[in-house]
């Protein structure tokens, strides 16, 4: 079964906001743990981002994925959650759209489907963050690219596994 790209019913719209808030809170939780472990790579935070971007796009399609991403990015900007918060606007929007555009071609029943969708999402999303690392944090572009690539690799692997498991559990739960 191929995935649809759009859903604009009230359930999807409200879901995008509510799950967008869950996304935001979990980003804060993982961000705090990252700060304690390693404030430079943000591996947990990056994985959390990739996981939610994928999950929301699967649950409620578009534009819900974009709306949830905007909720997360706007609150991150207004609370100085990260120096790169402004670039989250683009990372979340482009990452979510890319995920949906790839996911619509697959049944999303296999882990490989999730990995392919996450590759698109992580590459585009992390490219936006790379721009932030260059323009805001003033990192050398090579270093910015390496750190983003590392975050993306971890994000692709872990978020794909988590997305498959959690989305599967949600389908079994009959809550969707």
């Amino acid at each position: 079964m191929k995935e649809k790209l759009f859903r604009t019913d009230t359930k999807a719209l409200v879901g995008s906001v509510i799950i967008g808030i869950v996304f935001l809170i979990m980003s804060q939780v993982t961000g705090r743990i990252d700060d304690l472990l390693d404030p430079t790579l943000l591996l947990l935070n990056g994985t959390c981002w990739a996981f939610f971007t994928g999950l929301i796009a699967l649950m409620y399609k578009q534009p819900a994925g974009i709306i949830a991403g905007l909720v997360e990015a706007i609150v991150a900007m207004a609370t100085a959650y990260s120096p790169l918060a402004f670039f989250f606007l683009f990372a979340n929007t482009i990452g979510s759209l890319t995920y949906s555009l790839i996911a619509r071609n697959f049944s999303m029943q296999k882990l490989s489907h999730h990995i392919i969708a996450q590759i698109g999402c992580n590459v585009t999303g992390n490219l936006c963050v790379t721009l932030g690392l260059i323009y805001i944090v003033h990192l050398d572009w090579k270093i910015a690219l390496i750190t983003s690539a590392l975050t993306a690799v971890v994000g692709i692997v872990v978020a794909s596994i988590l997305d498959k498991a959690v989305y599967g559990a949600l389908q079994k739960s009959a809550l969707l």
Binding site: K11, L13, V14, G15, I18, I19, I25, M59, V166, L175
Partner: peptide, 18 residues
């Protein structure tokens, strides 16, 4: 996970009420 399940349940109820 309970947070997610609860949020999905909540959003469904909100949407229905709306």
């Amino acid at each position: 996970l309970p947070f997610l399940y609860r949020a999905v349940r909540r959003s469904t109820e909100i949407a229905l009420a709306m």
